[in-house]
Amino acid sequence: MIRMLIPLGVFLALVALLVASLQTGDERKVVQSPLVGKPVPQFSLPGLHDPDTITSRADLLGEPFILNVWGSWCWACRVEHPFVERLGREAPIDLIGFNWKDEREDALEWIGRFGDAWDRHVVDFKGKVAIDLGVYGAPETFLVDHEGIIRHKHVGPIDATVFADLMQRIMELEAQAQ
């Protein structure tokens, strides 16, 4: 009798495994970036308000900063915007907007409508630098330490939980930079 139950046991174990994987389905959709722990790639990109100002990697080193990838075409960027504004106000480090595959007019109009939460922007209309950064969907948020090492990456809109997590990490980065 007990031996008859073996197939049932195997079957139930399989069901348990599949149900467990269903729970983590959303997590697996997020592509883990191999760039966490690596330096921010070299770049030099123009500004959004000031197309003639070029910002390069070297300009940003020395202090930790947040790099927030957004675009006026990106619906989820509107969703996260209140939290981006809070980051701009409450985080003690620079918040850099990385305007991705956008058009200057559209981006400026978006900012006019929803507010400019960032300390400054760099624009990557062609998306070349975004590829080096492993960006695959806006919004994405990178935390970079004072040595230019990517310490954390969040993919998807920032909500209250993510905001709290980011603030905690930012405080740690600040403490290390001192």
């Binding site: 883990q32 080096d132 492993g134």
Partner: peptide
């Protein structure tokens, strides 16, 4: 590609 996006 792997350096930027991982084995994925």
């Amino acid at each position: 590609m792997v350096e930027r996006y991982g084995d994925y």
